[in-house]
Design a protein around this nucleic acid. Structure first.
Length: 647
RNA sequence: GCCGUUGUAGCUCAGUGGUAGAGCACUUCCUUGGUAAGGAAGAGGUCGACAGUUCAAUUCUGUUCAACGGCUCCA
């Protein structure tokens, strides 16, 4: 009795030396021992087979925990590698970590072009190996031994990894005939892996560096039962249905044309209507928050961006300058609105009493995005930011920043985004040359963001090296239907552009001072925001945003006039209503309106005309009874007001 | 930009070394129908583009363009 274990419920148990987490699980119940996957020992994730330290807190991780999944998929990556080595002798292994929804392994296949045609074979081999219930054996090896092993095996990538490791910290894991350099932890044995699915392949640079060789990355996912795999695949299917590119086409919101150019979205009438609503919503919120709207041109003199530093930083990787025909003057498609707004600030002398000055613009900008990067509406070459720049006194920065956080949260709340993460993006302290400005300015800006976020009680993650080149950021991220993370709103504190543009204001002592700039865009870009919103609501927009709010469906031609009158009444009161006058049966018209996700259908037949009412059908719910046209109008207004007045 | 996959009618997709097909959408006609697809006829495609192999290419090969899955990048 010389090991003391504290379980998550606080209870203490004593075991003999050499006891493993799996032994503890068995001592609690056989059932637990069957499902436990890994252990958290003093806050670190451990293999179940490792002997516990003398005194430890222990929690047993099952499939329902992140740590359990992590170990499960990590072990699955080894299983994948084992299967691949068996099937394709001579391949070289890169790394194979677990990720959020599964795992991958980077493989150098030499000349062989591994493709999805090979998946089935590999899956079968993995299951075959899993059934052998091979134990994952952990061993600590010296650096020399590790080097000897992989030199004999002829695996340059592993050797490169070992090169960066300290002697004494190196561990191997072996299952069956496969040994890998690995920190662990792993499952007790391969037998837990019951369902396997290879998802796709992709090119991935070795160590994420584009100068290195590109390996074949195989993405896969595994589960403790085939039922869970099935559910997972169904979720992926559902996500595909919500893909904004698919919904955008089906609902006729936007399109792309090769002739117009890649990454340049064309907004169709319905999409434009949606965007207009969002913009108006933002305008109103901004007016309430003391913003002033400005408008600036789509191009700007190159000198403007030389001043701002954008030219030096991005000029080479940007759209080329355009030239005037005779003078040869250089202009750039504007990649940013801020330099223009700086010049607006400078258009007249500013007093400390005037600050903050808040200049807002739905500014369309153009950036050269790499060919392979373009993605639906989320990554485009021309897009409109709901941009604004706040010019304030240093003593106002934190307060202004907090007000912007309020605005962003108001917007997210009104649109139903409850799941977002806030990320504080700071400068990379090891690579300061990537950034402009003094250490002092950076420190002030970073502290302002950290304090404002803290005081607002935001839950944040902090990322070093993610800042903009002129200042730190607070970014709001959400996920798309396929689980990819996208940055939406952003708030940035900037001490540098005011310096470069020599912005000033006159203080109460009649001296000149530099204002501080805050860049902010709650939506980020209209394009990306619409994409994320579209996936978020699966195309079923809240009533106030719906491009077609109401469709009036006359049962036959005879009721056309009445239908038109009802529609006009609604249109007159700013409800977007349309009449489906096609020579189709009512069932057909209803189906089409349902497919288009129109929120309300008003059915007009003989009864409705003689009673002066409309029959109301709600999308996804069906018949909700009759109302007078005026009653319907009130009903709709009420719903809209409720939606855009967040509590 | 890099690796891999794909590219046939407006959309979703079959198909073939001998100049193409379905469903939906579209047009016309019939039907005036009560809560998720009424019927008939018709029109519509240099099979992504350009080369090459071949008697013959949409099909095979190469190049290129674009989309998709990732990687690198993202003011």
């Amino acid at each position: 009795m010389n090991i003391e274990v504290i379980l998550p419920d606080g209870s203490q148990r004593h075991y003999p030396a050499g006891t493993t987490a799996l032994d503890v699980a068995k001592s609690i119940s056989e059932g637990l021992a069957r499902v436990v996957l890994a252990a958290e020992v003093n806050g670190q994730i451990w293999d179940l087979h490792r002997s516990l330290p003398e005194k430890c807190s222990l929690s047993l991780l099952k499939w329902d925990s992140d740590g359990g999944k992590y170990a499960f998929w990590h072990s699955s990556a080894h299983l994948l590698a084992e299967a691949l080595e068996a099937l394709y002798p001579g391949i070289k292994l890169g790394i194979g970590p677990p990720v959020e929804n599964g795992f991958y392994y980077d493989i150098d296949f030499g000349d062989y072009a591994f493709s999805s045609n090979d998946f089935e074979q590999v899956e079968a081999k993995m299951l075959e190996l899993a059934k052998q219930e091979n134990r994952f054996e952990r061993s600590e090896v010296s650096k020399a031994e590790a080097i000897r092993f992989f030199t004999e095996k002829g695996d340059p990538y592993k050797l490169e990894l070992i090169d960066g490791l300290e002697d004494g910290s190196i561990t191997f894991y072996k299952q069956g005939n496969f040994t890998d350099l690995c920190r662990g932890p792993h499952l007790p044995d391969t037998g837990k892996i019951k369902a396997v699915k290879l998802l796709n392949t992709a090119g991935a640079y070795w160590r994420g560096n584009e100068k290195n060789k590109q390996l074949t990355r195989i993405y896969a996912v595994t589960f403790p039962s085939s039922k869970e795999l099935k559910e997972h695949l169904e979720r992926l299917e559902e996500a595909k249905k919500r893909d904004h590119r698919k919904l955008g086409k089906e609902l006729e919101l936007f399109t792309f044309s090769e002739k117009v150019g890649m990454g340049l979205p064309l907004w169709l009438p319905k999409g434009a209507m949606l965007r207009e609503r969002l913009e108006n919503f933002m305008r109103k919120a901004q007016v309430r928050a003391g913003y002033e709207q400005v408008i600036t041109p789509h191009i700007g003199s190159k000198q403007l961006y030389v001043t701002s530093g954008h030219w030096e930083k991005y000029g080479q990787d940007s759209f080329r300058p355009i030239y005037t025909p005779h003078e040869g003057e250089e202009y750039l498609l504007k990649p940013m609105n801020c330099p223009h707004h700086c010049e607006i600030y400078k258009s007249k002398p500013r007093s400390y009493k005037d600050l903050p000055v808040r200049l807002a613009e739905f500014g369309t900008v153009y950036r050269y995005e790499q060919h392979g990067e373009l993605h639906g509406l989320t990554r485009v070459r021309g897009f409109t930011q709901d941009d604004a720049h706040l010019f304030c006194r240093p003593d106002q920065v934190k307060d202004e920043f907090k007000k912007v956080i309020d605005l962003v949260l108001y917007v997210f709340n009104a649109l139903g985004f409850s799941e977002y993460t806030a990320q504080i993006s700071l400068r990379d302290p090891l690579n300061k040359t990537k950034y402009i400005g003094t250490d002092e300015a950076w420190e002030k800006a970073e502290n302002a963001i950290i304090e404002a976020a803290q005081e607002k009680g935001l839950r944040t993650v902090t990322e070093l090296g993610e800042a903009a080149f002129y200042g730190p950021k607070l970014d709001f991220m959400v996920r798309d239907a396929l689980g990819r993370k996208w940055q939406l709103g952003t708030i940035q504190v900037d001490y540098n552009l005011p310096e470069r543009f020599e912005l000033e204001y006159t203080g109460s002592d009649n001296q000149k001072y530099r204002p501080v700039m805050i860049h902010r865009a709650p939506f980020g870009s209209m394009e990306r925001f619409v994409a994320v919103l579209l996936e978020h609501c699966g195309g079923k927009f809240p009533l106030w945003l719906s491009p077609e709010q109401v469709i009036v469906l006359p049962i036959s031609e005879k009721f056309k006039d009445y239908a038109e009158n009802v529609s006009q009444l609604l249109n007159y009161h700013d409800i977007r209503s349309f009449v489906d006058n096609r020579d189709e049966k009512i069932g057909r018209k209803i189906r089409d309106a349902e497919v288009q996700k129109t929120p309300y259908m008003l059915i007009i037949g003989e009864k409705e005309v003689s009673d002066s009412v409309v029959s109301v059908r709600k999308h996804g719910e069906g018949d909700i009874g009759v109302m007078s046209p005026e009653g319907m109008l009130e009903y709709l207004k009420l719903e809209i007001n409720r939606q855009i007045q967040p509590v």
